[in-house]
Simulated assay, not measured.
Amino acid sequence: MSSVLSRRIVFSLMFLIMMMFSGHKADSKCVFEAIFNFGDSNSDTGGFWAAFPAQSGPWGMTYFKKPAGRASDGRLIIDFLAESLGMPFLSPYLQSIGSDFRHGANFATLASTVLLPNTSLFVTGISPFSLAIQLNQMKHFKVIVDESHSSDQPELKTLPSKDVFGKSLYTFYIGQNDFTSNLATIGVDGVKKYLPHVIGQIAGTIKEIYGIGGRTFLVLNLAPVGCYPAILTGFTHTFSDIDKFGCLIPVNKAVKYYNTLLKKTLSETRTELKNATIIYLDTNKILLDLFHHPKSYGLKYGVKACCGYGGRPYNFDQKLYCGNTKMIGNASATAKACRDPQNYVSWDGIHATEAANHRISMAILDGSISYPPFSLNNICNS
């Protein structure tokens, strides 16, 4: 029997056991009752703008019809996952008004890094809410939940059950800012030197959450940032550095190095934590294919931003980000959104459109990019 087939059988049996002992009937929605997310702007559902209210302009135009605390024109991957599992969108941990944490919490904030930002490695513009801070917020959240259930507290109306932590998905979509924040200054080789520390911190965080009851972890790998308009316009390169699809070869090679090491480290962590389910999600595979072959997915544009300034080929200017207006020369210029974001992979040169996020989410749900095999559609009847 092949090792792949053996793993499939083991994981199938494991989830059958989970369903039997969770007290759920066969027709129930899901064995998971909540999602706790850790990340940066790729999965921030409003945390950064709750801490620093400022979002305006075309953000959220596709789904929310107004800015909704997301770095996209619409829903993020974490939004689609919550919807598919029958849960409401995750409330940001930092949002004090209107939040409902009965189905989890989102600790992600825009510009967050894995490593602590108070180091010479990082440039300005990085969020103070590193992964270590997000982990501390998670621990504090659990303390509040435990204390609330030990007494008659009114907060119970917006908090999950005390035993939710062992019945939750813990998702990680973070590491992009560790990679990109110094790319222009220290280059690919310089960035590669500290990537093992980034991955080690992610693995260490998983172990700490395991220690407080977490058992199921989904880790999204690093996106092909060498295809991002922001990197294509901000990273010094030659014509020979560009592949036939318009993406930066050396940058995406470094991304591949990171993802290979991440997959290996998660495999080792899985062996160490015997009762944990730790899934590596190769979202890079889908996103890279979207950039390379957008028309195969019903889109039109790969390495061109919907919301930006500058026109062809990238519609991105390092000095004028999406939604902003400033003087360029003697004239006022505005980085405006396109009218058809559903045809783009890149929303603003840095983040994906709702259209791209939806296609990535479908691959996560059907298990086609999961290692080991893991299909939320089958587990949760979503």
Rank of each mutant, 00 (worst) to 15 (best):
M1A: 10
S3R: 08
V4Y: 10
S6N: 12
R8H: 07
R8I: 15
V10S: 13
F11A: 04
F15Y: 13
I17T: 14
M19R: 15
K25L: 04
A26V: 12
A34R: 07
I35G: 04
I35W: 03
G39V: 08
S41H: 06
N42S: 07
W49Y: 15
A51T: 15
F52E: 13
S56L: 03
G60C: 07
A68M: 11
D73K: 03
I78G: 07
F80E: 10
A82V: 09
E83V: 01
P88C: 04
S99Y: 02
S99H: 06
D100I: 00
F101V: 01
R102W: 02
A108Q: 06
S112Y: 08
P117F: 03
P117A: 11
N118H: 11
L121D: 14
V123M: 00
G125Q: 05
P128E: 07
L131V: 07
L135S: 07
N136L: 11
N136G: 14
M138Q: 11
H140V: 01
E147A: 10
S148F: 01
S151C: 00
S151M: 06
D152W: 00
L156R: 15
K157M: 01
L159G: 03
L159F: 05
S161C: 03
D163K: 01
D163M: 01
G166E: 08
I174L: 07
I174S: 08
Q176Y: 00
Q176C: 04
D178T: 02
G190T: 15
K193A: 10
Y194H: 07
Y194A: 08
H197R: 12
Q201M: 09
A203Q: 03
T205N: 08
I209D: 09
G211H: 04
I212G: 08
L218V: 13
L220A: 14
L222A: 09
Y228K: 02
Y228S: 13
A230C: 11
T233M: 13
T233A: 14
T238R: 09
F239R: 10
F239Q: 15
S240P: 04
S240M: 05
K244M: 01
G246H: 12
C247Y: 02
L248A: 05
I249H: 12
P250R: 12
V255W: 06
K256A: 06
N259C: 05
T260S: 12
L261A: 12
L262S: 11
K263H: 15
E268T: 01
E268Y: 00
E268C: 00
I278N: 04
I286V: 15
P294R: 07
S296E: 15
S296A: 14
S296G: 01
K300Y: 03
K300E: 14
G302E: 12
G302T: 09
G308Q: 04
Y309S: 15
G310N: 03
L320P: 10
A331R: 10
S332I: 06
A333Q: 15
A333S: 15
T334H: 02
A335K: 03
A335G: 08
R339I: 06
Q342T: 14
N343T: 07
N343G: 12
Y344M: 02
W347P: 06
H351D: 11
H351N: 14
A355P: 09
H358N: 14
I360M: 11
L365G: 06
I369L: 01
S370I: 03
P373H: 09
S375T: 04
I379P: 02
N381A: 09
S382T: 14
S382G: 05
